[in-house]
């Protein structure tokens, strides 16, 4: 198993490929998908386009086409989720970090596909997109137990049609402004979807919007969800329930080596 691990967007990105190492040019192209977006959208860089728009130094109309495309995609999702997914952080600042990371994963995935690679896995800070198989077996993603982050709560196989999995929770990423109110009933929400942007946006939206958004999202999009409530209970959609319940058990202590 070949692995590429690098840091961007304040998190760590892992790329897995069953077989030989990725060519150096492909590695560079994958990195570039993350680093170029990071420069444009980082709220941690005062000179990024996002920071300039957020401060009002730059109009979102005169910002670059890539910036506008992402902003308007995010605005579309805000509309579609009745505001549960928001382009702003709770303190009102333009914050596209979630959708930008998902777009970077999407872009990197497209590059891998275009170069003819069939089997690969991308994990950026816990959001996962896969192609093909792992030596013929389905890619399997472990969902972290929010009550004990050293443990896995469930293993989910990413089957054709549901290639992306994103998890939203009480983020480690510490912002100095946070909100204690408006808490939702969930401590963690994982969403399984055909594409990573849908998975990421809806996981964020359900986390923020609670049961109403969960119900609305599950009925309007072809997704599956695994939610952990603040009291530690689990909720899941029927299709995922079947997968979670029928799997035979092996002894699979972590970490595993392929």
């Amino acid at each position: 198993m070949a692995r590429l691990v690098f840091t961007s967007m304040g998190t760590v990105i892992s790329v897995l490929r069953p077989g030989p190492e990725l060519p150096a040019s492909l590695e560079r192209a994958v990195r570039e998908e993350f680093t170029s977006r990071d420069a444009r959208f980082s709220s941690y860089r005062a000179d990024s386009e996002l920071s300039r728009v957020a401060r009002g130094d730059l109009s979102s109309l005169t910002a670059g086409p890539e910036f506008r495309a992402t902003l308007h995609r995010a605005l579309g999702w805000e509309e579609a989720t009745a505001g549960a997914f928001s382009v702003r952080s709770p303190d009102g600042i333009l914050d596209l970090a979630g959708i930008v990371k998902a777009e970077a994963i999407e872009g990197a995935g497209n590059i891998l596909k275009q170069t003819g690679l069939h089997d690969w896995l991308l994990n950026a800070g816990g959001d996962v997109l896969v192609g093909g198989h792992n030596y013929g077996a389905p890619w399997k993603v472990g969902i972290v137990d929010p009550e004990d982050r050293s443990k896995v709560l469930a293993g989910i196989e990413l089957l054709p049609g549901q290639r992306a999995l994103a998890t939203s929770g009480v983020s480690e990423r510490g912002s100095h402004i946070w909100s204690a109110s408006g808490r939702t009933p969930f401590s963690q929400v994982s969403v399984l979807a055909p594409d990573i942007v849908t998975a990421d946006v809806l996981a964020t939206a359900i986390m923020a919007g609670g049961h109403r958004t969960l119900e609305a999202a599950c009925s309007r999009w072809d997704i599956d969800a695994l939610c952990v409530t603040v009291t530690g209970e689990l909720l899941t959609t029927p299709r995922l329930r079947l997968q979670l319940q029928v799997k035979p058990t092996h002894d699979g202590a972590l970490p595993t080596s392929a």
Binding site: G83, A84, G92, G182, P185, A208
Partner: peptide, 12 residues
Amino acid sequence: MNTGIAERGWSL
């Protein structure tokens, strides 16, 4: 919860 977030949006 959902409505609270929607109300905080700038589009209202």
